[in-house]
Structure formats: C-alpha cells, structure tokens
Nucleic acid binder design. Structure first.
Length: 424
RNA sequence: AGAGAGGUGGCAGAGUGGUCGAAUGCGACGGUUUCGAAAACCGUUAUACCGGCGACGGUAUCGGGGGUUCGAAUCCCCCCUUCUCUACCA
C-alpha cells in the first residue's frame, strides 16, 4: 500500500510510476485519494475538537457531582448531549471516508523502480543475461510428463484419485529427489546467512492483507471458511508477516529468513493448454528467502539474493536466464522484480523458477513494519523475497535436460542429497 | 472438546466508574560521581493520527470488536488467546 503522504507530496512521481505499471485510472484515483485525504483530515480536526470539549465537560461534571451540585451537572449534560448528537453524524462520516480511502489505496499498485523497463507484456521484459549450455537431446527425447511415467516417479492419476487435478503424487526416486532438493536448497540458504524457519502453512486474514495477497488475489488462495484461514500461496506470506506490527530493533537488521513450505494456488482461470505436467500445479514445494532491511540497503540486498539464486542454478548445471520485468509484467506489490527461467530442453521453452523482488515500503506500510532511526523517529522498512527455489519446474528441467539412454543423470551436487545419481 | 482462571507499557506487576496513558519495581538510555568501571543519586523511557514553521497542543489506544454512561483499563455482549484440570491424540 502506498503512503498517502507520498501521493500528496510527490503526485507527479506517483502518476508517472502508475503509468509505467499501466494502471489505467491513475489520474482519477490519485485525485480521489487526495480529495478523500483532505476530507479525512478536516473531519478528524472537527471530531477531535468536539471530543476534546466533551472530555473536558465530563471532567467538570465529575467535579460537580462530587460537590453535590446536581443541577450544575445536569446543565452541562445538555451540552454533552448536543456534542453526542453531532458525533453521531461526523463520527460515521469520518469512518466512511477512512474506509473509502483505505479501499482505494489497496487498489493502487506499487511504484516501479527507476531501472524497470517500459513495457506491457512478458515480451517487453529485459533479458539481463543468459548462461549455461543448452543440452543436445537424443532424437527420441521426451518431455517430462512422459519421463515421469516411464520411470514411475510422479503420478498425476493417483493425485486425481485422492485429491484432484494439479496434485501429483511423488513416488520412490521422485519423492527422494524432492526431499533431496529441499535439503539442498535449505542448506545453501543457511550457508548464505538465512535463518531456517518453519512457519504454519495456514494463515489468518490479517496476514493475507499484510503481504498484499488480500484483497487483490482473493480467488487465488484456498480458503477454509469454517475457521477463516487461508492456505499459503508461498512462504513469503507467513515469514514476512512474522514482522507485522513490529518495530524492529536496529541491531536485528537485516532480517534474513529461509523457509521450505508446500504452496497452494487455486490458479483459477489459468488452467489451459501449455500448463501440462509439472509446469503448473495447485500444490508444489518451494524454498523461499525473505529479507527485511533498512531502506538504504534494500537494493544491495536484492543483488545478494540474485547472486544466491544464480549460484543454485549454476550448481544444478541448468541453463538459465535472468529477466528484469517490465512495468506491465510486474506483480502488483513489487518495485523491482528479477525472474529466473531455466531451459526446459524437451519442451523447448523457458520455465520461470524464481522471482526475486524488492517491495520497498509497499508491504511494510500495510504490515506496519518499522524501525527507529537516530532521534527516535519510526520509519518503514523495506521487504524483499525470492524463490530459492520452486521445485516442480526445476524437476521438469532436470529430467528433460539430463535424459540419456541409461536414465536421468542427476547433477553431482544432488547425489549425496538423493542417495543416488541416476533415475531409472 | 468440557470446566475454571487470566490477558495492563520492553519485562514484572498495581489499579474494579471520574483528576488514569496508567502507581511501583526491573531493564534500557542520558547525566552526576570515578583514572575507568561497579554502586549510589538525578532525569528520560509507547504507538498512530490531527493542528502548528516550531515550542507545543489535541484525539485514540490497557488482547480485538461492539454496547451501557455526561464519563470505561474498570460494567455488559461477541470473538481471539494463555494457563490449570478433565477428555482426546502424534
């Protein structure tokens, strides 16, 4: 959520940013925000003054009552009754204006960083670099959805039976590969200075709002109506919300956390042709890294996260490329996002396996996540996160890129983690 | 899941209708003292919003929300949560 003060003091900058994100009704919405803000402040000034008078009268009445002057007290009560009546209209009016303001602010996306390229679609993303060697596959190479059947390691039919589409069952070496990858990613994160965390995978409504998943993406999360809890779409939600309503001590900064969790996404409306196999699932495993930093350090932190993810892909010997997302393709909450894609050789396409973002104060403002600067004033922190990494597409690329007549040859680094070097 | 008891500032812990944003202690910070430190003493020590160039003033917040009242930390209702006992379970 953007800060009203920023809209008020840097209106032109805000409008330019929203335009870069292709937010259609920027002019009108910003004007409305400013208008609501002005009305809100005027109403609060009026209300506060009335409340101050009422408080003063209440004290006087108390004094009169104690002195036994019932008539005097009753006289003052006439005035408080009038104030009360006034409050009955201005009070709800203020609440209404605040609510409208809040709802409109929830609708406005974050402003993009200066380095974000112009553009509307994925095709406009800037390719930062490409690395690794694309493998030359044998003539009878198969896509991963065939390979998993051939080696009997991931079973979609069984998942259909016990749950539904998009909930695969990992079997034998498939399950062990999952476990090995999870451990590998967690160990790497720990070595890079991230504290391993195991959060709940159901969160309450306030947490959904804190990271910006609500109200924007309400339909994308699984929701348990009975207890009003949401299944997390990413560990970003519980981990970042650990710092909701906190004033973080300066010596605890930067916060660095890593967590493995299953992730749940309804993917409403996006179930289509090119989402076969492991490309898109309702449940998948992911290791997420989260940082909370002082504003002046957040872009340096983003670079370290980028380097960390890049190192993982290099250790897995997967060909990859890094994209800087354009304004139109970035998420609602991000100020700057780098996507990592790996080459899925049999599909002949790039698969997104990680998204690393700086949210600046956008989440922190909702979260009320702050620290104290010199002089004792509180200031919003910056939040960042990235996948390090999401498993299914990594598995897809590992299977496709490393298929040989003898089976799937796993990269060296995974052998000890999995307890085997070859699938098949 | 049933019964009972609680949730107050960074922590501990008073306060059961008015002068309470809240005693006291601890901790932390600043100062005095000291060669330095400890001890002692003095002082400071929540957050958000509104008004003001500022000094400062105002409003709200005692788990959350609603209500009663001129006035609520204190009374009433709902929710969340913690502890004890019972039940259950990995």
């Amino acid at each position: 959520m953007l800060q009203v003060s920023v809209l008020r003091e840097q209106t032109a900058h805000v409008l330019a940013g929203l335009a870069k994100k292709h937010y259609a009704t920027a002019e009108a919405d910003v004007a409305t925000v400013l208008d609501l803000d002005q009305r809100r402040r005027a109403l609060q000034t009026t209300n506060d003054a009335a409340q101050a008078e009422a408080n003063q009268l209440a004290t006087q009445i108390g004094g009169l009552m104690k002195a036994g002057d019932r008539a005097g007290a009753d006289a003052l009560k006439l005035r408080t009754a009038a104030l009360k009546q006034q409050a009955q209209t201005t009070g709800p009016e203020l609440a209404q204006v605040e609510k409208e303001l809040q709802q409109l602010l929830y609708k406005l996306p974050n402003l993009p960083h200066a380095s974000v390229p112009e553009g509307r679609h994925a095709a406009d993303n800037e390719i930062l670099r490409e690395a690794g060697t694309k493998p030359t596959l044998p003539a009878d190479a198969q896509p991963h959805w065939e390979l998993i059947k051939k080696f009997d390691i991931i079973d979609f039919e069984l998942g259909n039976k016990i749950t539904g589409a998009g909930f695969p069952v990992y079997k034998g070496q498939g399950a062990r590969l999952q476990r090995g990858l999870i451990n590998f990613f967690l160990d790497e994160a720990r070595a890079a200075g991230y504290t391993e965390m195991q959060p709940p995978i159901l969160v309450n409504e306030a947490s959904g709002y804190g990271t910006g998943n609500l109200p924007d993406k309400d339909g994308q999360m699984y929701h348990d109506a009975k207890d009003d809890l949401y299944l997390i779409p990413t560990a970003e939600v519980p981990l970042t919300n650990l710092y909701r309503d906190e004033i973080v001590a300066a010596n605890k900064l930067p916060v660095r956390m890593a967590g493995y969790t299953p992730c749940f996404r309804r993917e409403a409306g996006s179930w289509g042709a090119d989402v076969r196999g492991l490309n898109r699932l309702h449940q998948f495993d992911k290791i997420e890294i989260v940082q909370i930093t002082q504003p002046e350090n957040s872009y340096a932190a983003l670079e370290t996260m980028l380097a960390h993810v890049e190192g993982l892909l290099q250790k897995l010997s997967l060909p990859y490329r890094i994209l800087r997302l354009c304004g139109g393709d970035m998420s609602f909450t991000a100020a700057l996002t780098y996507d990592f894609e790996v080459w899925s050789a049999a599909q002949g396409r790039w698969l997104e396996v990680s998204s690393v973002s700086n949210f600046e104060t956008f989440q922190a403002n909702r979260l009320k996540c702050r620290y104290k600067v010199e002089g004792g004033k509180t200031q919003l922190l910056h939040t960042l996160n990235g996948s390090a990494l999401a498993l299914p597409r990594i598995v897809a690329a590992l299977l496709e890129n490393n298929q040989t007549a003898a089976g799937i040859t796993l990269p060296e680094v995974l052998h000890s983690y999995c307890g085997f070097g070859t699938i098949g």
